[in-house]
């Protein structure tokens, strides 16, 4: 009985101690275990993904013509926008020079994207996270944003020398002591629109964006991107599209339901955004 009580005390204090999100630096044994298992897991994950991918490729063969058509349209849009973009980028650079921007200010929005391979996935519904194969030695630090080809998927929570853990956005919750809200805005309305993506609802699979002003022009169908206000997250990372907008709990501000752009099912390559 006494031993059971002692065990409970030890475990509850261990849980409480490791819960704090200020505990960003791992101890040496943790780092060693993470890196060793990360290496072993990478030997399994990739071949399994390759074999599973073979079957998926065959299944997707039907959609390939449709997809090709859409991609052609997207490329033509891209070429047209590219010409426009070059003019604006050149103008912007000239203004920055004329207004005497410091080196630091010029580099503020220049991000570096590091490619990373997924080595393992934890499916625990209360603690969903994935491990990637780059770490401290590649310049990864806690709280950096992680994106897939489709959009933002999470943030780095813990870093070891050779691997790091990504906390997925499906863990977002305004009541959770470990989660931070993300400042967001809509594409095309960057200066007028603002809201906070605060929580993810596993029952419907959507984000909830809160603290939207009544007069905000945000509408259904808008693409939501991170705004970079506060500089905790890089700006311009795609979060999702607005499904619906409604009056919030207290009637003062509005909330919006957002369908995530990234899918949280298949993990292959991810990018870590290094500011």
């Amino acid at each position: 009985m006494f031993i059971l009580l002692l065990g409970m005390i030890i475990f509850i204090s261990l849980l409480g101690f490791t819960l704090s999100n200020k505990r960003e630096n791992l101890t040496f044994p943790e780092k060693m275990i993470n890196d060793t298992f990360g290496f072993a897991q990478s030997l399994f994950y990739k071949p399994a993904g390759f074999i599973a991918g073979l079957f998926e490729d065959i299944r997707d063969l039907n959609h390939i013509y449709e997809e090709n058509e859409q991609l052609k349209i997207a490329v033509s849009h891209y070429i047209r926008d590219k010409a426009n973009y070059n003019f604006i980028a050149a103008d912007n650079e000239r203004y920055q020079k004329e207004l005497h921007f410091t080196e630091e200010q010029k580099k503020l929005y220049k991000y570096d994207y590091r490619i990373a391979q997924v080595v393992s996935v934890n499916q625990d519904p209360y603690n969903k996270n994935i491990t990637i194969n780059i770490g401290e030695k590649n310049g990864v630090k806690p709280n950096m944003a992680v994106i897939s080809v489709d959009g933002m998927v999470g943030t780095i929570s813990h870093v070891s020398p050779l691997t790091s853990t990504v906390k997925l956005l499906t863990d977002l919750n305004e009541k959770n002591p470990n989660s931070n809200a993300i400042a967001a805005t809509a594409i095309g309305k960057e200066n007028q629109s603002f809201g906070l993506i605060e929580s993810y609802d596993p029952q419907t699979g959507t984000y909830l964006m809160t603290k939207i002003d009544e007069k905000d022009p945000l509408a259904v169908g808008d693409t939501i991107v991170s705004s970079g206000i506060g500089e905790a997250f890089p700006r311009g990372l795609i979060m999702g599209t607005v499904i619906s907008r409604q009056v919030g709990d207290y009637g003062l501000t509005h909330t919006a339901t957002i369908k995530p752009a990234a899918n949280f099912d298949n993990w292959k390559e991810l990018f870590v955004v290094v500011p």
């Binding site: 849980l15 409480g16 934890n122 929570s157 853990t165």
Partner: peptide
């Protein structure tokens, strides 16, 4: 404990306690 350390997200010790 090994599982908790490898997949450390929120806290360490949950699986260790429950499995034991």
């Amino acid at each position: 404990l090994l599982h908790d350390v490898i997949h450390y997200g929120n806290m360490i010790g949950v699986y260790s306690f429950s499995m034991g």
